[in-house]
Design a protein around this nucleic acid. Sequence first.
DNA 1: CTACCGATCCCCT
DNA 2: GGGGATCGGTAGA
Length: 240
Amino acid sequence: VADRAFARALLDGDLEAAARSLIGARLVRRRGDDLGRRVGRIVEVEAYDGPEDRASHSRFGPAGRSAPMFGPPGRAYVYRVYGMYTCLNVVVGPPARPAAVLLRAVEPLEGIAAIRAARLRHDLRSRRSTRIAGADPAGEAAARARAARVRDDRLAAGPGLICAAFSVEVELTGTDLCDPRSPLQLAADDPADEAAATIVATPRIGIDYAGEPWISVPWRYLVADSPAASGPRRRPSPAG
DNA sequence: CTACCGATCCCCT
DNA sequence: GGGGATCGGTAGA
């Protein structure tokens, strides 16, 4: 089944509308490493506006890592955070308004074995660098056991976890996510799908340094009650 | 449930 | 030299 193109025009207007248009869209990893095709549904995003938004990386100006935010909509802005994770943004708005939407959670749909393998690879790479060089078979076995217990719908339940699960590295910054030839791209949602999805808005996560009003503006959008959203979750609820 | 903590590295604030 | 658009673990109420 061919992916349906994601219309770039959806990203070129109002910031909130652009962010909401990404909820339900598909994130597709087509190639770029030895793992197979992976597809997931975007269920949680956050909007970051121009330099006046004191939580937005566009406040650093067009010369640094956030340069893609000052370019055309539909490209990726990828950066490393806290040393060991990466975050994936979709650039939105015209270049005159440097803004982006952070992808915060994705529900795996296809290629779940590959998604799980990519996450395990990331987990093992992270912990290997924390250990003295040499064998640590017990620790590695424990890491593998932990990874095996993660439910399918939690495999990309956070901005760092998306990038681990879809092999998004900083080298992919600037990639045109609306180009079907790209190794990482967006695709439209299933027309028979998403109709019943209720989107809720909350303040953004992890930006207390920005001060008000930026701490409180409700620019985090997520599918209500999605089991794949970020943050701690209990076991699957019996009645949905 | 809340709170805190460490890992790790690149960009700057 | 400071600190972060994270995450998983631990301790305690």
